[in-house]
């Protein structure tokens, strides 16, 4: 008996239920891009090496090129098309525009999805390889430039926009901290002054 090579599955994407037939070999990334026309998630390598396909699955960042679509059934998938609140951009999106945290834009959706998760991971107290004191009781380290650089290093940017990406993530993180009424002082380091921030809207 030949085994079935395709199935009809239901994906939960950006708050919507989407039912689609897929080849079992179809990755989540290809299902999003080719079947659901959500082309915001990018394919830079298809090998989990570049991070351009980063989406949020159940709130955690993941490279969608290394998952089969059938394995994403029942999970909540959020893509770049779903991170804004209606017409109001997510603070990370706005910071990327204002601080020029991109050039060609191809890695940008993955960077933004990663950054959203980075801010949440940090707020939840997760350490990184750049964290000096990783004891649980030490609490979250300051989200300084080195922490952001380390936590954002799964997302390659060949245009070399890292400097302004770090500044954009820092600005969005500060906004998120302000919202949570944790009025901490500025994170210092070389983030202060965000010298590219002289932008005006065209």
């Amino acid at each position: 008996m030949a085994l079935a090579t395709s199935s009809t599955i239901t994906l939960h994407v950006n708050g919507e239920r989407r039912t689609l037939p897929v080849d079992h070999r179809t990755t989540l990334l290809d299902a999003l891009r080719d079947h659901l026309e959500l082309t915001g998630s990018k394919k830079g390598c298809d090998h989990g090496q570049c991070g351009a396909c980063t989406v949020l699955i159940d709130g955690r960042r993941a490279v969608s090129c290394l998952q089969f679509a059938v394995a994403a059934e029942g999970r909540e998938v959020t893509t770049i098309e779903g991170v804004a609140d209606g017409d109001t951009l997510h603070p990370v999106q706005q910071a990327f525009i204002d601080l020029d945290g991109y050039q060609c834009g191809y890695c940008t959706p993955g960077q933004i999805c990663s950054a959203i998760a980075v801010i949440e991971e940090h707020a939840a107290g997760w350490p990184s390889a750049a964290t000096e004191d990783v004891r649980p009781e030490a609490g979250a380290p300051p989200l300084d430039a080195d922490e952001i650089r380390e936590r954002m290093s799964g997302n390659l940017c060949r245009c070399g926009a890292y400097v302004s990406i770090v500044q954009a993530v820092a600005r969005a993180a500060e906004a998120a901290q302000g919202e949570s009424a944790q009025d901490k002082s500025a994170q210092g380091g070389d983030l202060a002054g965000a010298e590219a921030g002289t932008a005006v809207t065209a």
């Binding site: 804004a84 951009l89 706005q94 525009i97 065209a202």
Partner: peptide, 10 residues
């Protein structure tokens, strides 16, 4: 800022 910025971040 880039005129296509909104399209790139969304």
């Amino acid at each position: 800022t880039r005129v296509e910025g909104l399209d790139k971040v969304t």
